[in-house]
């Protein structure tokens, strides 16, 4: 008798667990922290600093979402995920948001049932080789041994690229960027291939970065962005418009330095709508009115985050290029706040 009660309770609990993922915002608020999935360590995108604080471009997206919800950029628990474990972690609800240099593809969006909130970084797959090999083009790589992270889109691009160009190669599968770096430096592979931004970040941590070169060919489109589970549109909207708020802020010239002043009210109605002095955009998202103002003041706008983490002033030294604003010849373009 008692047993059947227990099983009844368990069954109900199981059913509840199945449907509990609907309102992510409520779960996050109840928990008081955002669970955010990031890389296991890639300088400039997500890596812990000397004090163990996570920093980087992907980390800033997590912090921005946490700021939008709680007004506190530190209300985040970071979960380092390998490329092989990231999707199960998001699908199972272990993380609320995956901000982990993840390429937006059709099958991930449709078949794996995820929702990409936008493109935070326009990237493409490149090749890193030692200068001493004397290789100047990816077309010269016939017969090379290539280190490649398994479970990524780069693995498929690589197979396609060598196949189309009728070249042979020997794949050496690795699991993390750190492992790839070690294998590459030991000469266990001739070439390391992954997204070119990650190659730049990896090269920047080498003892002698000048002895290595990223080849000019970019063999794929890798639009990287944060993603959430299908089926919770409110949560998807929050992440999407957090990213858009950062991009719009840069376009409107709102920075972490002047946001306090601009929040007092300006002549530009879009700035007023963005910062919550006019209209109720925050309320429509289920957030406070000053959600975007908090993001800009604690994390900064898109350009500030880019420059601080991966920009040309940093050791990683990535130019804005495609990631520039549309007004400056790039592709970053946010729908309007109205």
């Amino acid at each position: 008798m008692n047993k059947s009660v227990i099983f009844g309770v368990l069954t109900v609990a199981g059913l509840a667990a199945g449907t509990a993922s609907a309102a992510t915002l409520d779960d996050v608020k109840a928990r008081g922290k955002l669970n955010c999935g990031v890389t296991t360590g890639l300088a400039g995108f997500a890596s812990p600093d000397a004090n163990g604080n996570w920093e980087g471009f992907d980390v800033d997206v997590c912090r921005a979402v946490a700021t939008a919800v709680f007004g506190d950029p530190n209300a985040v628990d970071f979960t380092p995920l390998t490329s092989a474990t990231r999707f199960s972690a998001l699908a199972s609800g272990e993380v609320d948001l995956l901000s982990r240099i993840t390429t937006w593809t059709f099958s991930r969006d449709v078949d794996l049932k995820f929702e990409f909130a936008g493109i935070a970084f326009y990237d493409g797959q490149g090749f890193l080789v030692p200068k001493e090999l004397g290789v100047s083009s990816a077309k010269d790589l016939d017969g090379a041994t290539v280190c490649i992270q398994t479970g990524t889109t780069t693995e498929l691009n690589l197979a396609d690229y060598f196949r189309t160009n009728k070249m042979e190669y020997e794949p050496v599968p690795i699991e993390t960027n750190a492992e790839g770096q070690q294998q590459y430096l030991a000469g266990a592979c001739d070439v390391y291939t992954t997204d070119s931004s990650a190659l730049a970040a990896t090269r920047a941590t080498f003892e002698n970065p000048d002895e290595h070169v990223v080849l000019p060919e970019i063999i794929s489109k890798e639009p990287l962005g944060p993603l959430v589970r299908h089926g919770d549109n409110q949560w998807g909207d929050i992440v999407r418009w957090t990213l858009n708020a950062m991009i719009t802020a840069e376009e409107l010239g709102v920075t972490s330095a002047n946001v306090g002043e601009l929040a007092g009210g300006t002549d530009n109605p879009e700035i007023n709508r963005l910062l919550g002095t006019d209209g109720n955009l925050g309320e429509q998202l289920g957030l406070s009115a000053d959600w975007a103002k908090n993001i800009i003041s604690s994390v900064g706008n898109y350009g500030e985050s880019f420059a601080r983490n991966v920009g040309s002033e940093t050791p990683i030294g990535i130019a804005r290029g495609l990631n520039g604003l549309w007004t400056e010849g790039g592709l970053q373009y946010s729908p309007p706040f109205r």
């Binding site: 490329s83 092989a84 999707f87 699908a91 099958s107 991930r108 078949d111 794996l112 398994t150 479970g151 990524t152 693995e155 498929l156 599968p173």
Partner: peptide, 8 residues
């Protein structure tokens, strides 16, 4: 590993 990841 790879198949699981690519197909989900």
């Amino acid at each position: 590993g790879i198949t699981l990841n690519q197909t989900g």
